[in-house]
Design a protein around this nucleic acid. Structure first.
Lengths: 112, 112
DNA sequence: AAAATATACCTAAGACTTATAGGTATGTAA
DNA sequence: TTACATACCTATAAGTCTTAGGTATATTTT
């Protein structure tokens, strides 16, 4: 698990990228997917995730539709048109930022 | 200039790396060096920088010596032994984090 | 069958980091 | 002489995340 300050500011980018690729996902699914893809190194907390999802929905970046699974409720999130634009911008900006940091900190990265 | 949330959490890493490489630097010099090395894409604000420098000094990560330049004062910061350890840990952690993010976001980075 | 864990949603209060917006003062360039 | 660069600093607010709860159903373990 990385120190939390390192992950700060990346939450929206991660959410938008995952939702853009997978079409629709619900909150809990996002936490599990991130945990799985990062071997547990990034574990989103629900206290951060849910308020962020709600804010993105309020801003028209995401839309929801609730589904009953047994007696439980799932809220699936989907990126809107403006959400797709934002997702792509966020990812591009992060990529640019990382290139800058690689140069600034003189790092060697694994090839993707 | 990157969105501020992106840069959050990287300040200490940047400071410690620069100081480790350059031996000693003063606050204003750090802001200029970062601005120069990143083509203005990262501009440290003094409101963030100085309190952080003071905190690192209070924690024994940095030491200072003040020098008079004309009638002005410069406070040079140097990393202590434990500071060097922390610098190397911070940089390694950030590098690891970036590798994780590259995979998670499926990015292609420039080769360093 | 009971207890523990996983699934699935949520929020409130506090901690922490950074931005904003100041203040002080000297040196230099227009 | 006016503006900008150098050089330090801090207080308040803004923003994001952690901590620590709460509710409830489904499944696995003991």
């Amino acid at each position: 698990m990385y120190s939390s300050e390192l992950i700060k500011g990346t939450l929206k980018t991660i959410i938008l990228k995952l939702l853009s690729e997978n079409g629709k996902m619900y909150g809990y699914e996002i936490t599990q997917k991130v945990k799985e893809l990062t071997d547990g190194k990034i574990q989103l907390t629900e206290g951060a995730l849910y308020p962020t999802l709600h804010a993105l929905e309020a801003d028209g970046i995401l839309t929801t539709n609730a589904v009953n699974v047994g007696n439980r409720i799932r809220k699936y999130y989907t990126v809107t048109k403006s959400g797709k634009k934002m997702a792509s911008e966020k990812v591009t900006e992060f990529q640019d930022f990382m290139n800058t940091m690689v140069f600034l900190l003189d790092l060697k990265l694994k090839k993707g």
